[in-house]
């Protein structure tokens, strides 16, 4: 565990806590894409299958996996049941089959081993890389976002971004490279570049997150 990896994981943890805080305090899931959140549930369930296969890594690893599965399911519950009226499906219109289909095809072609667990793992990596697209698409459509929502997105974007120096560090420290994770991670981080530009130039200067018309 190096500092980049730890900061990345903490950033991921923080993003979920920020999102939960936003939903609980405003009693609303306005501005949050249900589709993106549902994709994260699929990502975590397909990636963390190893929890149930007895591949023990560490207490940290198991606790984080359980937290990500549990919190993502809880967020879906909040959006779909508890605060259902505050979610507007009419602006959450990205077609998820354009993300799930290609991710599945890629996973069938590019994986480390032709086993169900490895194919699902690769699928979860590809799907995670693009799962934010319905959310970013929604932001693009509405052209604005609550500040707390932008902090959520910034923490979530920083998470995979911080994995990049972690991979570079690991290449030099123990010679390991995971090309599937690295390529998908670069794509995932790349998707946030536009968002980060506006976040740094507007939100962190105390202005509202607004896209030019």
């Amino acid at each position: 565990m190096n500092v980049f990896r730890l900061l990345g994981d903490l950033s991921h943890l923080a993003s979920i806590l920020i999102l939960l805080h936003k939903i609980q305090t405003t009693r609303s899931c306005r501005g949050i894409s249900f589709k993106t959140q549902a994709l994260y549930v699929v990502v975590f369930l397909t990636r963390y299958l190893d929890l149930f296969l007895g591949d023990w890594v560490s207490l940290y690893n198991t606790a984080m996996k359980l937290f990500f599965i549990g919190s993502s399911c809880y967020i879906l519950y909040l959006m779909k049941l508890r605060f259902r009226p505050t979610h507007d499906p009419a602006i959450d219109t990205f077609r998820v089959e354009y993300l799930v289909g290609p991710s599945l095809i890629l996973a069938l072609i590019f994986n480390y081993k032709y086993t169900l667990v490895e194919i699902l793992w690769a699928f979860s990596i590809y799907l995670e890389a693009v799962a934010i697209m319905p959310q970013l698409f929604m932001l693009q459509r509405t052209g604005e976002a609550e500040t707390i929502t932008t902090h959520y997105l910034a923490a979530l974007g920083a998470y995979r971004g911080l994995y990049i120096p972690n991979w570079i560090y690991r290449y030099f420290s123990d010679g390991t490279v995971d090309p599937i994770a690295v390529i998908a991670g670069l794509v995932q981080t790349g998707l946030y570049l536009d968002f980060f530009y506006v976040y740094f130039t507007r939100v962190l200067q105390g202005q509202k997150f607004e896209l030019p018309a």
Binding site: R5, D9, H12, D50, D55, V57, S58, N61, M64, K65, F68, Y112, K113, E118, W121, Y163, R170, T176, V177, D178, A181
Partner: peptide
């Protein structure tokens, strides 16, 4: 055996 190089990442 071929497989993932890294199994501890999240």
């Amino acid at each position: 055996a071929r497989g993932r190089a890294v199994k501890d990442e999240l």
